[in-house]
Structures are given as C-alpha cells and as structure tokens.
Simulated assay, not measured.
Amino acid sequence: MESYGSTSLEGLLQKSYTVKIGDYISSGFEIFKKNAGGFIGFTVVLVLINLVLAKINEAASPVGSLISLLISGPLNAGFLIVAFKVLRNRETAFGDFFRGFNNYVPLFLVSLVSGVLIGLGFVLLIIPGIYLAVSYTFALPLVLDKKMNFWDAMEFSRKLISKNWFSFFGFGFVLVLINFAGALLLGLGLLVTIPLSVGAIAAAYADIVGLPASSDF
C-alpha cells in the first residue's frame, strides 16, 4: 500500500485499537469550548446557506441541490480543519473554516463518491448503506491530514474501521442521539452538538490514526 507522509498505512492496518466513545465525546466538547464562538458561527453560516439553497430549489429546481453537492464536502471539512488546529494547540481564525476550498477536488470527490455509494447501499436492503456510512467515517479526515486521494482515503477508512466496526457503529449511534437531543431543544442545541460531534470524530482520528504536529493546520 502507498505510504503518505512518514506514516505507513499498511502498518496502521496491522495495529489493534480500542474505540473510546466516552473519551472522544469528552474531547469533542473540550474542542468545542476552546472555540465555541467560531464553531457556533460557522454552524449558523451552514444553516443559512442550506436555507438559501432550499429557496433556490423551490424557484429553480434542482439548482440548489447541485450547488449543495458542489460545496458540501469542502464546507463540512471546515469543522475538522479547526478541530485539528485546536487539538494541535494552534491559533484559529474564522477563515480556517473555509480552508477546505484550498483542497477542493479531493474533498468534493470523497463527499460525492462516498455519498453515492452509501445511497446505493441503502437502496440495497439498507444494511450495506449502514456499513459504508460507518466505514467512511475517517475518509474526509484522511484527505485533509494525509493528503490522500479520495479513493485511497475511502478504502483505507473502510479497512481500518472494519477492524472494529461495531464499536464505531456504537460511537456513531451515540452521536446521532446527541444530535437528536440537540434538535429537540428547538434546534438550537444543534449549534453545540454538531461541532461537538465533529470534534469527537477528530479526537477519535487523532487517537487511532495519529495527528502529526507537522501539518498545514
């Protein structure tokens, strides 16, 4: 398998690991607290963008959906970029949330292709879709951190997470419950639970894959 940076991906696949759900969620909350204003502000921006795109869809369907498809990957990566900087104890700026556009093509492709495959998996009796949705958890972080191409990132994420898939499923299920609770609070709780969830995923990635100090962010 190809090596990205100084870390051998083959070596990572040979290691065993434990999914520490409670630790990752606690870390996610700590990451959120260290830049609460930025995370809340960016979440509000994403909500507003989605509302505008919904209006565009009503007026000129399916233009809004096409725009969403084109920008969702790089925008969603913004949470991870800032979370990684917080984990590395680096200063953050609001503009960091939009730095995913500096690496647009692989982030767009990993979002597009994984979304298509997950969607097809749900059509095929649902279970394959659930398997892929969990298995691709690290695909976006790998593109950001290891500068992997979209397919290598998806495949490596799938192979690594499949080693402990049911634990990751439990992790994902807990995050879904947390966001469901956030939605019940008139939706305002999502301003906290969405970035908390991404922070928890960033913490899991740092624990299992590793987060070297030498990086663009």
Results as ranks from 00 to 15, higher is better:
K146D: 06
A200H: 07
V105C: 06
A83E: 01
V105T: 09
L13C: 07
M148F: 07
K20L: 07
L53I: 08
V134I: 13
N164T: 01
G100E: 04
G119Q: 11
S197E: 09
L117W: 05
G5R: 08
A213G: 10
K159A: 13
V19Q: 00
E2S: 15
N57M: 09
S61D: 14
A60Q: 15
E58Y: 15
Y17P: 00
G119Y: 10
L70D: 06
I40D: 03
R99G: 10
E91W: 03
V19C: 01
K20N: 08
A153V: 02
V134L: 04
N179I: 06
F29I: 04
L9R: 04
L53S: 06
N164P: 02
A203Q: 05
I40F: 09
I208A: 00
F84V: 05
F168S: 03
L140W: 04
G210V: 15
T92Y: 12
T7L: 12
G170N: 06
N149Q: 11
N76Q: 13
V19D: 00
V113L: 10
A93I: 11
Y4H: 12
L120Y: 12
I71N: 01
S157N: 06
V86I: 14
F97D: 00
T7Y: 08
D23G: 03
N179D: 10
F84L: 11
Y104E: 03
V209A: 02
G210T: 14
Y205N: 03
V45F: 13
P128C: 07
S8A: 15
L109F: 11
T43D: 05
E30H: 09
